[in-house]
C-alpha cells in the first residue's frame, strides 16, 4: 500500500481531523481507513476533470459527512462488529468510551451502560461473597426504626450494621446471580440496540 503523492489541502485537513477522531483504533487500522478515503476522494476528483474547483472539493467532502460524523460511523460499526465476535462487557465499554468521546448519544449510552454493568456486578459480587460472609453480606434495609430507611448492598467486609436487617438471607445467592446476569445481558443488548439505531439513522442520505 502506497500513499498517493497528491491531494488537496482541504482533503488533507479533513483526513487529519478524521485521524484524530479515530483514536482508539490501532495505527494500522487508522492508516487503512485514511488511505482508503484518500483514494476515494482522488477518484472523485478525477471524475470532476482536470480543473477542480474548491466547490467540487467541498462537495466531495460533504458527501462523506463531517470528520466527526464519519468517525462516529466507524466507531459504532466497529462496536457492532466486535459484539458479533465477543460480547464481553469490557470490549463493549471500550468501544462505548470512543463513541462517547464523539457524540452526545454515545455519552448517554456509555453512562447507562456503566450503571447497568456496575449494578449487575454488585448483584453478582454480593451473591458470590454471601457464603464467605454469611452474617453480613447481602441486601440490607438500614435505619428502619428512624423512619428514613435505605437499601444497602453489603459485601460483608464490615461488621453487622446495628440498625438494619438482611432482607433476602441466602436467597441473595440465586437471586443476586440471576439479577446480575440479567442486568449485564440487558445492558449489552441495550447498548447494541442503541448503536444499531444510531447507525441506521445515518445509513442513507436524506430523501
Amino acid at each position: 500500500m502506497t500513499t498517493p503523492d497528491h491531494a488537496d489541502p482541504k482533503i488533507e485537513a479533513y483526513l487529519a481531523k478524521l485521524r484524530a477522531q479515530l483514536r482508539g483504533f490501532n495505527d494500522q487500522q487508522v492508516a487503512e481507513i485514511v488511505a482508503e478515503l484518500r483514494s476515494h476522494m482522488i477518484d472523485k476528483l478525477a471524475i470532476s476533470g482536470d480543473a477542480v474547483t474548491p466547490a467540487q472539493v467541498d462537495a466531495i467532502l460533504a458527501a462523506l459527512g463531517t470528520p466527526e460524523e464519519l468517525a462516529n460511523q466507524y466507531i459504532t460499526d466497529n462496536l457492532l462488529a466486535r459484539a458479533e465476535v465477543s460480547r464481553s462487557p469490557l470490549r463493549i465499554l471500550d468501544s462505548l468510551f470512543r463513541w462517547a468521546s464523539l457524540s452526545v448519544a454515545g455519552f448517554f449510552v456509555l453512562i447507562s451502560s456503566v450503571l447497568g454493568y456496575f449494578f449487575g456486578a454488585v448483584f453478582i459480587l454480593v451473591a458470590i461473597l454471601k457464603p464467605f460472609h454469611p452474617q453480613t453480606a447481602g441486601l440490607w434495609l438500614l435505619h428502619e426504626s428512624t423512619g428514613d430507611p435505605e437499601f444497602s448492598f453489603r459485601m460483608g467486609f464490615s461488621s453487622t450494621p446495628p440498625d438494619g436487617r438482611d432482607l433476602l438471607g441466602w436467597w441473595i445467592v440465586p437471586l443476586g446471580l440471576l439479577a446480575g446476569c440479567a442486568l449485564v445481558t440487558l445492558t449489552t443488548r441495550s447498548a447494541l440496540w442503541c448503536a444499531r439505531q444510531y447507525r441506521k439513522s445515518r445509513t442513507l442520505p436524506p430523501t
Binding site: I33, E36, L37, H40, A63, L64, G65, E69, L70, Q73, Y74, T76, D77, N78, L80, A81, R202, T203, L204, P205
Partner: peptide, 14 residues
C-alpha cells in the same frame, strides 16, 4: 439503493 458515501466505508470495515 442510494447509499451515502460516509456509510459504505464504515459498513465495509464492519
Amino acid at each position: 439503493l442510494i447509499v451515502s458515501e460516509g456509510t459504505i466505508y464504515p459498513l465495509l470495515s464492519r
